[in-house]
Write a protein that binds this DNA or RNA. Structure first.
Lengths: 197, 197
DNA sequence: AATGCTTGTTGACTTTTGTCAATAAATTTT
DNA sequence: AAAATTTATTGACAAAAGTCAACAAGCATT
């Protein structure tokens, strides 16, 4: 319980910044969120499973990925402080088209879809918070769309550097490559060219 | 006023499907939404302007686009029934990084940001509707992200056919090309290859 | 620390796409 | 309807990225 409060503090800060949370709602969060440790390499959500929870990433690094043919494509990279779901699956409670995997040892706070619905029912004003958060994530997603329309691999990699530089050393390069939609060899060459200039 | 009710009916249907709207809220919408005709080629929102309204596209076809270097890139294609905004600009009331243009003669119902905030204030339960709508649009955006990570031009064009076939003849091919992130010449060649097989 | 496995780099080559230019087709304007 | 403008197609070539393969480097594990 005590750990819960400490680990959820950053989430409460995000939510309070939108609109102060009532004490009752805070207590309900503390009650429903379950803290879990996820070891590097572990898969939080498997493709085809239903995303039945939302995770607040207290600490660590995650990626989501899906398969196209024989290739694995990294779709998102999520770091400490992120609210993590597989959107399509969570919103509609249908099978996921992507998996979510830990790129480092993580601590997550897990909230089930059902508990969240219960929270919405009891505290309708919480819709306001999630509306604003969804809007924010929507906008970030739009940025990634722009990134993918950039001309060449160098421009895409620069986007990565501008947005994920902190995590550069913690993410295997092959995952960065597929995130940017280039072959690993191409990213390797792009990096060595950029380094020399 | 009468026209308002008729033209807003599809929007009310979308909202009612989420959760029935109160009569008072409906009346407020009818009061605040302004119907406008937008001729083909007209620009609804100019880059660098603030997106001060949301539009419900009663009828017609729109595209959003931004400039990279000397090139114009189509980022979205929006058809009848869409709720249209420039997300980043509207949510934060800061200058837009994209323009929105009519690809056909359109009828739009326009709601100002300020009037919308007023609606949120008076009817907080409306946050529930917009939360679900934002979730839906988020998911659609995710699909477009997947599309851009597809291997080749043919796969991207097939995505377009699956999702926008109805509007194929109304959208100049050069806009489809930039939407799919390929050169117009490449799309032309891809189409002629696909047609022959 | 040594072994084995995975990941990253580099080279040679292929494929795809982009670019430039000319022409054809379609649209718009007068 | 004709002229003018824009858009689409096609060809020739260049550039970028993908693929395959060999090797090096980095990590885990023991």
């Amino acid at each position: 319980m005590e750990t819960n409060i400490v680990l959820l503090a950053p989430l409460f800060e995000i939510l309070n910044d939108i609109q102060p949370l009532s004490e009752k709602l805070k207590l309900l969060f503390i009650k429903h969120f379950k803290i879990e440790e996820v070891k590097k390499g572990k898969v939080l959500l498997f493709e085809k499973d239903i995303c039945k929870s939302l995770w607040f990433l207290c600490d660590g690094l995650l990626r989501s990925y899906h398969n196209i043919g024989d290739k694995e494509i990294t779709s998102r990279i999520m770091y400490t402080g992120h609210i993590v779901i597989s959107a399509g699956s969570f919103f509609t409670q249908t099978p996921a088209t992507e998996s979510i995997e830990a790129l480092a040892d993580c601590v997550v706070a897990k909230l089930s879809f059902n508990d969240l619905q219960d929270i919405y029912k009891r505290f309708p004003e919480f819709n306001y918070h999630t509306r604003l958060i969804t809007e924010q994530y929507f906008y970030k997603q739009e940025q990634r769309l722009y990134m993918l329309r950039k001309h060449d691999a160098a421009a895409k990699y620069n986007f990565f550097l501008e947005n994920y530089a902190e995590y550069l050393k913690d993410i295997p390069q092959k995952y960065i490559a597929s995130f940017l939609n280039v072959a690993p060899e191409t990213l390797s060459r792009t990096r060595s060219k950029l380094g020399k200039s």
